[in-house]
């Protein structure tokens, strides 16, 4: 079985994001970029399926600028077998990505597609669901456990107030939650091997997909800074403040 994993290049999660002075977006100049952490969990799960003998090939796909090859190489250093970059410098919406991924799915015919549940930059949480609809595949989102059997996959999902277990017919789409696994560190020998693994570069035009966005970002603002707390002198003062200032009781 082939497993397709989609990965996204985002700002490294350690970086404090700054809004550009003209408020047109966030400042990406000279900022460290990395693989979206949820995508890393997706790669790890696919590699584990391969190690268990469930999957026989792990293909990693990314959509974005040429430099997104770095994230594909990272995924290959973690154990993916080959990569596909759909190269475009256009800003992409979730729908355009889902359309492109649908085309990749048509070409590769994977038994399982694993994606991160959302990216830490736009926090949309849409691509997996849209891909499910477009490709006509069943989906298990927010997965915290996966068990693949012959023709189906059992997915334990993290939902409000508990866990839900679903059985999906293969081929299926899974989006990963934080607790699905703990991604490994890339070992040096695997980093070196990754350099020699095949990486195909395509464009949206190769798939006949129009990626021009229908959205326009009007304004990006930093969140309001939290103001300093105050020390209250007594319980009655606290109650008074909660009643009259915070108006929570």
């Amino acid at each position: 079985m082939k497993v397709l994993v989609a990965v996204k290049r985002v700002i490294d999660y350690n970086i404090k994001v700054r809004v550009k002075s003209d408020q047109s977006g966030v400042d990406l100049a000279n900022v460290k970029m990395a693989m979206n952490p949820f995508c890393e969990i997706a790669v790890e799960e696919a590699v584990r399926l391969k190690e268990k003998g469930v999957a026989d090939e792990v293909i990693v796909v990314s959509i974005g600028p040429k430099v997104a090859q770095e994230q594909i190489r990272t995924a290959m250093a973690l154990g993916a077998d080959r990569g596909i970059l759909v190269e475009t410098d256009e800003p992409l919406e979730s729908l355009a990505i889902a359309k492109l991924l649908t085309k990749v799915v048509e070409v590769e015919q994977p038994g399982l597609v694993i994606l991160g549940k959302q990216s830490i930059d736009a926090d949309n949480n849409q691509t997996g669901q849209m891909l499910g609809a477009l490709a006509g595949m069943s989906q298990g989102t927010f997965a915290s456990e996966i068990n693949v059997s012959e023709n189906s996959v059992e997915v334990t999902r993290e939902i409000d107030g508990g866990l839900q277990t679903l059985s999906l017919n293969l081929p299926a789409i899974i989006t990963t939650d934080l607790r699905l696994n703990e991604p490994r560190y890339a070992s040096l020998p695997n980093i070196m091997k990754a350099k020699r693994k095949p990486l195909d570069v395509k464009t949206p035009a190769d798939f006949g997909v129009n990626v021009i966005s229908g959205l326009k970002t009007l304004l990006v603002e930093s969140p309001q800074e939290r103001s300093a707390g105050v020390l209250v002198g007594s319980v009655s003062e606290l109650v008074e403040k909660l009643k009259n200032e915070a108006k929570v009781i």
């Binding site: 190489r73 890339a186 980093i191």
Partner: peptide, 16 residues
């Protein structure tokens, strides 16, 4: 280079 960059990322993640 790419390899050094990835090795640095691995080591930084381990430490973190």
């Amino acid at each position: 280079n790419d390899i050094q960059q990835m090795m640095q990322d691995s080591a930084a993640k381990f430490i973190q």
